[in-house]
Design a protein around this nucleic acid. Structure first.
Length: 670
DNA sequence: ATTCCAG
């Protein structure tokens, strides 16, 4: 259809919006993954070009603006200093209302005043949790303590439900960490000042966190020194804090940043200019991240906001009007709000992709590319980009490099990224027998929560109906249920009122529910990484968990990856798996998706920096496990570090290594 | 197959 391009957000819309120059080229020149690197022009602007914001280019020079990483003792990230402090002059903290956050003159006063802080007396915005403080005369003035909010955010002092979220690994130090890239800063070992801001530390204490998790130890100095980050960390290892802590700490120390100059008279409407944007693939995950953000923004000048679909947009808009510094969003709703002119990304300094490999997978990549490259977000030179996931297939890493600049690659935990805390069992069960085997499991299983994964929404309904008819306290969550139903199901599960939850992939990633003692893969996913994420719903925060998967010949497409994974995690490998693997999973490959993973390329790549292999190696390289120790640095082919955001260097992307036959255009979801 | 605006 004629709208095809537009649906992906890749066309030139809004021609009044920006000087086209290179930006125009970039917008219309979307190159699908499978075409990239094969002689087609690079999708981005030349190095150093600031094609992002509309209006005049930002001021040069950094002149010690408060936002620059100065107070924390870390060096500025390579080359980013230049444009980083866009509008450094306007930033100079002004007293009074607007504090320089949003200097777009066309904004109505009311919005401007509320843009941050200043709600001082009237804590009508108390609902937001964070953001009762303000930034004044170059200083952070936290709002007064609020016992009610405090209880809401952090729970009763001895509420086990809330306390459980405080991660309590007994032996953090046993977890191996590899960091690669140029000049990786030393990890921190404690939540102390320096480098962390005292107000943040106070909130961390309220939340009951004692010691940084491994991923936090590394991510804090990496982010605070201005570097980009690709972090591969085992599930339940504190990734959310890994990005929230350094981002908020910087914000508390340095205050608001001036917005990039806005196109005059563009909009009479109220428009939010967040400086941090966190994207995640499901509404529930976004909501969970937002709840965390509220904790650590408590009493601060930073106002967190959340937007996602299926919920009343009016209340989300009103909430944004009370200020929106750190925005947590699902891609669809964010695009919607951008189109309505209610959000501008021109002030973004931090972009976070949580569950980054999913966000860059076929289903999401066009939307992400549109948000990051097709709107007014600053380019890689003028923002920091952080990506987190438990799995990071190499082809997705290659894609991710489009959005990163001289990033540090961080790998925390075991290869394959499944936790040793999870005991994985695989049982051979024919489809027809699944129900009765499941009943056996549920009968023998004691206390604790059981999460059952199926492949389709329909199956989620029928199976939960079946279980309820059998007298089990079950419910379900999937994308065809209303948001209200979804949230209720999750809440019933979380609180144990409904300890059996049947779920589709919507619950596979990131959700942090304590006390999930058993994950059942009633249907195995076709992608082993999905399996990794699913079982990661148990065994969190240092607890142990059990995972049971029903396997039959319909799953032979993942048999090879599954065996590798089990071995890597020191789990028992049942004989039938080996047998079926020998039967030749190779040809039919089960219901294999023709897409990424190029065969069995995953196994060794999930926790490895692709740069270590030399740029653009094909997945056929897989199997080689032998990446050396930590700090391996760039292998050949990473090319000149200064070559801008698209530093493919020499190696190039070896034609066709993405093997994406259909391209990303096929999605017709909206 | 699944996720992601509203309708």
């Amino acid at each position: 259809m004629a709208d095809g391009l537009n649906m992906n957000g890749l066309s030139l819309k809004d021609s009044q919006h920006a000087p086209q120059q290179n930006g125009g080229f970039e917008r219309s020149a979307y190159i699908p993954p499978h075409m990239r690197g094969s002689g087609a022009p690079p999708p981005g602007p030349p190095a150093g070009f600031d094609g992002g914001a509309a209006g005049p280019p930002p001021a040069q020079g950094m002149n010690g603006s408060a936002w620059a990483p100065q107070g924390n003792g870390y060096p500025t990230g390579p080359q980013r200093g230049n444009n980083w402090n866009a509008g450094a002059q306007t930033f100079t903290p002004r007293t009074g209302q607007s504090n320089g956050w949003d200097n777009s003159p066309q904004l109505p006063r009311g919005f401007d005043r509320n843009a941050y802080g200043g709600s001082g007396g009237g804590s009508s915005g108390g609902r937001q949790g964070g953001g009762d403080g303000r930034w004044q005369d170059g200083k952070h003035i936290p709002g007064p303590p609020n016992p009610r909010i405090e209880r809401e955010l952090f729970g009763e002092p001895n509420d086990p439900l809330k306390q459980a979220s405080g991660i309590n690994f007994a032996n953090y130090d046993d977890i191996p960490v590899e960091a690669s890239g140029d000049g990786v800063p030393e990890p921190v070992t404690t939540f102390t000042n320096p480098p962390l801001d005292n107000h943040l530390i106070a909130n961390i204490e309220l939340a009951g966190y004692k010691v940084p998790t491994p991923v936090q130890k590394y991510s804090i100095p990496i982010v605070m020194s201005g570097r980009d980050l690709m972090a591969c960390a085992q599930t339940g290892s504190g990734k959310t804090g890994g990005f929230l802590f350094p981002i908020l700490s910087q914000a508390y120390q340095n205050g608001p940043v001036a917005a990039a100059p806005q196109q005059a008279g563009f909009s009479r409407q109220r428009k939010a200019y967040p400086t941090s944007l966190i994207l995640a693939p499901t509404r529930e995950l976004v909501s969970q991240i937002y709840d965390e953000a509220r904790k650590f923004a408590y009493r601060s000048w930073v106002k967190p906001c959340v937007v996602y679909g299926g919920a009343d947009i009016g209340s989300q808009l009103r909430s944004m009007e009370r200020g929106c510094d750190l925005l947590v969003a699902t891609p669809g709703r964010l695009v919607d709000l951008i189109e309505r002119g209610r959000i501008s990304l021109s002030s973004i300094k931090y972009l976070v992709l949580d569950e980054a490999d999913r966000m860059l997978d076929m289903g999401f990549e066009p939307q992400i590319r549109r948000i990051v490259e097709g709107e007014d977000m600053p380019r890689t030179d003028n923002r920091q980009t952080l990506m987190f996931s438990a799995t990071f297939p190499r082809d997705i890493q290659m894609l991710a490099r489009d959005f990163l600049r001289e990033y540090v690659f961080l790998s925390v935990g075991r290869v394959g990224s499944t936790s040793e805390n999870i005991t994985q069992k695989i049982e051979y069960v024919e489809d027809a027998d699944k129900r009765s085997v499941l009943l056996d499991i549920l009968h023998t299983h004691g206390a604790g929560l059981t999460l059952i994964f199926v492949e389709t929404k329909r199956m989620a309904d029928t199976l939960s109906d079946f279980l309820i008819n059998q007298g089990f306290p079950a419910t379900s969550i999937h994308g065809d249920r209303t948001q209200r139903e979804r949230e209720r199901a999750l809440d019933m599960f979380r609180t144990g009122r409904c300890p059996i939850l049947v779920a589709t992939a919507v619950a596979a990633r990131g959700l942090d529910v304590s006390n999930v003692t058993h994950v059942v893969n009633y249907d195995l996913p076709t992608d082993i990484d999905d399996y990794v994420h699913r079982i990661g719903r148990t065994g969190r925060a240092g607890n142990t968990g059990i995972s049971t998967a029903f396997f039959n010949r319909g799953n032979r497409g993942v048999v090879r990856d599954l065996i590798d994974l089990l071995k890597e995690a020191n789990q028992e490998v049942p004989g039938f798996l080996e047998t079926i693997a020998r039967e030749g999973a190779g040809f039919g490959g089960g219901s294999g998706r023709g897409g990424r993973s190029g065969g069995r390329g995953r196994g060794s790549s999930a926790m490895k920096d692709v740069r270590s292999f030399g740029g653009g190696q094909r997945p056929a390289y897989a199997g080689g496990m032998g990446m050396g120790g930590a700090g391996g640095g760039y292998g050949g082919g990473y090319g000149a570090p200064q070559s801008g955001g698209y530093g493919m260097g020499g190696g190039g992307m070896g034609g066709g290594s993405y093997g994406n036959p259909s391209g990303p255009g096929a999605n017709s979801w909206w």
